[in-house]
Structures are given as structure tokens and as C-alpha cells.
């Protein structure tokens, strides 16, 4: 499983990657592999403001539903509409086409509270 070196990670397996003044969020390659085939992704609408740790959506695999948690506090600036038509993007390209939301963070420094790629790789045994 791959770990995107440019991203930071929550303990709950969401990645957060700074792109300009936004933070792109999805789930790690490890997480998508654990969940198995993704068949549905439900995301809160753009414009919604949420605290770190609040649920921004739900991802449904073949067998179960799992909540998705905000890695940092902020407002949702964009959601990936492509996942409605093709949720398997999360399996195939979790760090690129399978991104879920873009967050305009309350405080860009919050990113530093997350695990860096090395620490996350160690967490999921990918070292």
C-alpha cells in the first residue's frame, strides 16, 4: 500500500494535503484496502463548517458503512462530485481522483497536529 509523502494523516486514516490555500482530504490507500470495494460515498455539502473530528461524510463498502472525520477544522470549499458516479475511484486512486473534499482551514497550522507520512506508514505497518 502506498503512502502519499506530501500528505499528513489522521489516526482515523483520512489524509490531508495542502494545495494552495486549501486542504485536500480523502482516505489513505491502506484504508481503502481495508474497507474493500467502495460502492457509495456520501459527503456533506460545500459551504458547511465543521470542527476537527466531526463527520464530513460516510463511505460504504460492500459490507459496511464507515464515517469520515474532518482532519482539521474549517469549511468545506469543494466536494468531489465524480464519486457519485464512480465511488471505486477511492479504491483505484485514493490520493488523486478519489479525493473527497477540499477544506478551507480555520488555521493552516492545524495540519501540523496530524501524523506525517513516515509516522503514518509506521502506524499502518508500511515501513
Amino acid at each position: 500500500m502506498s503512502v502519499d509523502a506530501k500528505a499528513r494523516y489522521a489516526q482515523s486514516h483520512e489524509y490531508a494535503r495542502q494545495e494552495a490555500d486549501l486542504i485536500v482530504v480523502g482516505i489513505s490507500d491502506h484504508a481503502q484496502d481495508e474497507l474493500g470495494d467502495i460502492v457509495f460515498v456520501e459527503l456533506k455539502e460545500a459551504g458547511k463548517r465543521l470542527e476537527k473530528g466531526q463527520v464530513f461524510g460516510t463511505i460504504e463498502s460492500v459490507k459496511a458503512a464507515s464515517d469520515l472525520y474532518m482532519p482539521v477544522s474549517g469549511s468545506i470549499a469543494a466536494v468531489n462530485e465524480a464519486l457519485q458516479a464512480d465511488p471505486s475511484l477511492v479504491n483505484r486512486e485514493p490520493y488523486s481522483g478519489g479525493w473527497m473534499i477540499k477544506i478551507r482551514p480555520d488555521n493552516a497550522k492545524d495540519l501540523e497536529t496530524l501524523l506525517d507520512a513516515k509516522a503514518y506508514a509506521s502506524l499502518v505497518g508500511e515501513e
Binding site: G36, D37, V39, V62
Partner: peptide, 10 residues
């Protein structure tokens, strides 16, 4: 096994 490595959909 819930699924083999190729995954349930495949």
C-alpha cells in the same frame, strides 16, 4: 473469507 484479494465486486 469475505473476499479473496481480487475483491467482492470482481
Amino acid at each position: 473469507p469475505i473476499s479473496y484479494p481480487s475483491g467482492a465486486l470482481e
